[in-house]
Simulated assay, not measured.
Amino acid sequence: MNEQEEDLIRRMYGLVGDRWDLIAGRIPGRKAEEIERFWIMRHEYVFSVRRN
Protein backbone atom coordinates (compact mmCIF):
# COMPACT_ATOMS: atom_id res chain seq x y z
CA MET A 1 0.00 0.00 0.00
CA ASN A 2 1.27 3.43 -0.77
CA GLU A 3 0.89 6.39 1.56
CA GLN A 4 -2.18 7.78 -0.21
CA GLU A 5 -3.96 4.42 -0.04
CA GLU A 6 -3.13 4.06 3.66
CA ASP A 7 -4.50 7.52 4.37
CA LEU A 8 -7.70 6.77 2.45
CA ILE A 9 -8.15 3.45 4.25
CA ARG A 10 -7.70 5.18 7.61
CA ARG A 11 -10.23 7.89 6.77
CA MET A 12 -12.75 5.47 5.26
CA TYR A 13 -12.45 3.14 8.26
CA GLY A 14 -13.33 6.10 10.47
CA LEU A 15 -16.44 6.73 8.38
CA VAL A 16 -17.76 3.25 7.56
CA GLY A 17 -15.92 0.95 9.98
CA ASP A 18 -14.86 -2.48 8.80
CA ARG A 19 -16.93 -2.52 5.63
CA TRP A 20 -13.94 -3.57 3.57
CA ASP A 21 -15.93 -3.93 0.35
CA LEU A 22 -16.90 -0.24 0.45
CA ILE A 23 -13.34 0.81 1.19
CA ALA A 24 -11.97 -1.39 -1.60
CA GLY A 25 -14.42 0.21 -4.01
CA ARG A 26 -12.57 3.51 -3.51
CA ILE A 27 -9.12 2.08 -4.24
CA PRO A 28 -8.67 0.80 -7.81
CA GLY A 29 -6.96 -2.57 -8.06
CA ARG A 30 -7.39 -3.51 -4.39
CA LYS A 31 -9.63 -6.26 -3.05
CA ALA A 32 -11.58 -6.16 0.22
CA GLU A 33 -9.61 -9.11 1.62
CA GLU A 34 -6.31 -7.40 0.85
CA ILE A 35 -7.37 -4.22 2.64
CA GLU A 36 -8.69 -6.11 5.65
CA ARG A 37 -5.44 -8.08 5.91
CA PHE A 38 -3.44 -4.83 5.68
CA TRP A 39 -5.57 -3.22 8.40
CA ILE A 40 -5.22 -6.17 10.77
CA MET A 41 -1.46 -6.32 10.24
CA ARG A 42 -1.11 -2.58 10.91
CA HIS A 43 -3.27 -2.74 14.03
CA GLU A 44 -2.17 -6.14 15.30
CA TYR A 45 -1.50 -4.82 18.81
CA VAL A 46 -5.05 -3.50 19.20
CA PHE A 47 -6.56 -6.81 18.13
CA SER A 48 -4.35 -8.81 20.48
CA VAL A 49 -5.27 -6.58 23.44
CA ARG A 50 -8.99 -6.98 22.69
CA ARG A 51 -8.68 -10.78 22.66
CA ASN A 52 -7.15 -10.84 26.14
Rank of each mutant, 00 (worst) to 15 (best):
D7T: 15
F47D: 01
I9S: 02
R19P: 03
R51A: 13
M1R: 05
Q4T: 15
R50A: 15
R10M: 06
I40V: 15
E33K: 10
R10L: 10
E5M: 03
D7Y: 05
M1T: 11
L22D: 05
E3P: 05
E5A: 12
V16R: 04
W39N: 10
I40W: 08
I40D: 00
I40F: 12
H43Q: 04
D18M: 06
H43Y: 08
M12G: 00
R26N: 02
R37T: 12
G29E: 12
H43I: 03
Y45C: 00
R11M: 01
D21F: 02
E6L: 10
E44K: 15
I27W: 01
G14A: 00
G29C: 12
R10I: 15
M1Q: 06
Y45H: 08
L15K: 14
D21S: 13
R51W: 06
M1S: 11
V16P: 04
D7Q: 13
P28N: 03
I9G: 03
E44N: 08
E6K: 13
W20P: 15
A32F: 03
P28D: 09
R37K: 13
R42E: 14
L8P: 09
D21E: 14
D18L: 01
Y13R: 07
E34N: 08
K31H: 13
N52V: 14
H43V: 05
I40Q: 05
E3A: 14
E34P: 00
W39A: 13
S48V: 14
P28M: 01
M41T: 15
I23R: 01
I23A: 02
E5F: 04
R42S: 13
R37A: 13
G17H: 01
R37V: 04
A32C: 06
N2K: 14
R30P: 03
I35F: 08
K31G: 11
I23P: 08
G25L: 01
R42V: 09
V49M: 08
M41V: 14
R26W: 01
V49G: 00
D7W: 03
E36C: 09
S48F: 10
R30V: 12
V16F: 09
G29R: 09
I9A: 02
L22H: 04
L22W: 05
I35G: 08
E6R: 10
D21N: 11
I9M: 04
Q4A: 15
N52Y: 15
M41D: 15
